[in-house]
Design a protein around this nucleic acid. Structure first.
Lengths: 228, 228
DNA sequence: TTCAACATGATTGTCGACATTTTTGTTGTC
DNA sequence: GACAACAAAAATGTCGACAATCATGTTGAA
């Protein structure tokens, strides 16, 4: 998912992308078993490549691999959910600080171009593109900050956020729409770091507040482990 | 490295461990090329397993893989170094909060047992064991906090910290000795969260302050990219 | 009827061989 | 002598087949 410039140029990233989108669109529910051969057949690739993709998804926290058992869509608990959002706020704040401190001339036009894509996808009701572009906006901010570490860290957190939102959302996904992103761009253009930080904080808290993090959803795999 | 209970039970983790230790001991310097066949020969394993290990190390940020070019020991810049320490402080703080909020009866004895191992390794001058156990203490705290997410995140950050320390340290490694860990255990036993947080903060800042983060070290790979 | 041991099927894990790409060394020409 | 094109070598990337492991269904005896 969200492959950046240098890393994962391979075609395995495409498998990741499609699996991730299926998760984001709730076509693949948490706990679902992902059989390698089956995926290889669906995507018309070798099993080795599926394996490779699953390993990537595991490091992103999207799937859980049990040795000799198989891969499953992860089922993060509420504690993990809170931790993820907690650190996402921290990372995104750091991103804004770095971005403001050393902003490139091309940053604003790039952000606006991305925003235009978001609005277009939103207008034509393309939820798949909307989901991807929505996360992509935050990731673009990280890339523009110039820190590869922040970028890869945030990519991980965004993936996890999407899965968590899928599991615990109360109403509609909402998924941070273009309007709030437009506000962020305005603050960045105005070199208003405190304002941007506040907006980002509100933005992310808003997403978290839409979730029902009062109790864990039943975890299938734990049943198994419980009766050992 | 630092393999926790469930994840990476495979023998590939052993390759990671040995490569990581070689990096930590400065036997493998940043920028060093890691040829797959060569590693396979040294460790007497198949090349596929080496490949697997290198992929893990890449996700930990310890090696950088350039497609069709090979794997190299990573060379984090000063900005990345600061980001890593910044988030390590955040994560370790969160770990302490979770640990204090929901502490198990066996936590203190486990920590003390680990501390004993650290002191023993330190006493007999076993730097290899000292390095591993030193990071292991922090990782044990994360495991005791009960959060798999914090644990995996911190493992990543500790690996990166070690590499960064290797690159930018001014004097001796220091590498957070057992004494400071003993202080942390005392605060935890006393249920003194603010005190523990302060100690951890000082502890980590102390490590960072020992580094010379004023300028990037010359990056070999950039020379190549520069003359494109 | 129940439980345990076993046999079968399905699925994951591993390895070696081959294809592709990059790098290095050479040759030939200007 | 320098440079470009080409050829050879080395390294990485990919794939298919086999081995090991786990889940399931069956059979047998208590």
């Amino acid at each position: 998912m969200y492959q950046n410039k240098e890393a994962t140029p391979g075609p395995a990233a495409e498998i990741c992308e499609r699996i991730w989108l299926s998760i984001a669109e709730r076509k693949l529910r948490p706990g679902t078993r992902l059989k390698e051969e089956q995926l290889a057949e669906v995507f018309e690739v070798s099993r080795a490549r599926v394996r490779q993709a699953l390993a990537m998804l595991e490091s992103d926290g999207l799937v859980t691999i049990l040795p000799n058992r198989g891969a499953f869509v992860s089922e993060p608990g509420v504690d993990e959910a809170r931790d993820v959002f907690h650190f996402r706020r921290q990372v995104e704040a750091r991103v804004l600080e770095r971005l403001m401190a050393n902003i490139a001339d091309t940053a604003i036009p790039q952000l606006e171009a991305h925003l235009a894509l978001e609005r277009e996808a939103d207008a034509r009701g393309d939820t798949t593109a909307t989901i991807r572009l929505s996360g992509g906006f935050h990731l673009l901010l990280a890339e523009l900050s110039g820190s590869g570490f922040l970028t890869s860290t945030l990519r991980d957190l965004i993936s996890r956020s999407t899965l968590i939102t899928t599991m615990y959302r109360r109403h509609s996904h909402h998924n941070c729409g273009p309007d709030e992103h437009a506000g962020l761009i305005a603050r960045i253009r105005a070199r208003d770091l405190p304002g941007a930080l506040r907006l980002m904080e509100d933005h992310l808290r808003h997403v978290e507040d839409e979730l029902d993090l009062t109790e864990d959803v039943p975890v299938l795999r734990d049943l198994r482990d419980a009766l050992v």
